[in-house]
Amino acid sequence: MKKNTINVKELEEKASEDTEGISSMERRKFLGFGLTITGLFLGGSVLSLTSSNPSFAGIRGGKALVADYPYSPHYTMVIVQNHCIGCERCLDACRTTNHVPDGGYRTDILERSVPVSPDENERVFMPILCNHCNEAACVRVCPTKATYKDKKTGIVRMSIERCIGCKTCMTACPYNARYFDEAKRAIDKCNFCVDTKLKESGGKITACAAACPANVRMFGDLTDPETEAYKLIHAPGKALWVLRPEKNTMPNVFYTNASLSSAH
């Protein structure tokens, strides 16, 4: 049976229409973030992902990738970027729920001015937070395992009493997702509200997602087909992307737009 695979060579030869200048090499690395790839959209800058149906296996360097969600529940967040209105209610909710001190933040909203034509730019709000990467650089570099991947959920968590304050994790994180909390004398970061809102809601939602009036932050479980995030990620033909794919960190936070016609 002929498998519906993507040929890396073909991928490289595609005419690049990408808006972020992602090279074919980077796109190829993008293939490695652990999900099965079913399609290539918008000139290669975004990829469509689906579940591990073997007949839709993507390839990496010529070998079939077996999509696999190593955690259960495997928490994820899909950001519907073009729905974000920049109201920052999510930031306030995060701050209050998780007692984030002044001067620190666990999540932020970046405002982008994306060139859509030679003399036209589009304003876009881009929420950012810890990507809870499967290949988390922060976890690998921490000398005392003060930051670790939760074996059950895949959440990147902190064990604050073990933190020596070397800040190597901050230096290593490509997403600027960590800060040092002087009061705790340890690193603080997004933990998907595992000890606050997520716990209260029985594992259903985070504070930022609950506070968002525009349904931008779709929190869910990659192993639960009932969650909105699962549906978005597995919707056929849905274009999704991750931030800084060239860093090979295999993030669990995905970005999408509500309509395929709007460029990310």
Binding site: T144, R162, C166, F180
Partner: peptide, 23 residues
């Protein structure tokens, strides 16, 4: 340069991290 140097001796032994080059 560390914020909590007093934790180094204890946790680099109690909680060693072979994946960490700093360790």
């Amino acid at each position: 340069e560390l914020e909590n140097p007093w934790r180094v001796g204890l946790y680099s032994m109690l909680s060693p991290a072979p994946s960490s080059n700093i360790w």
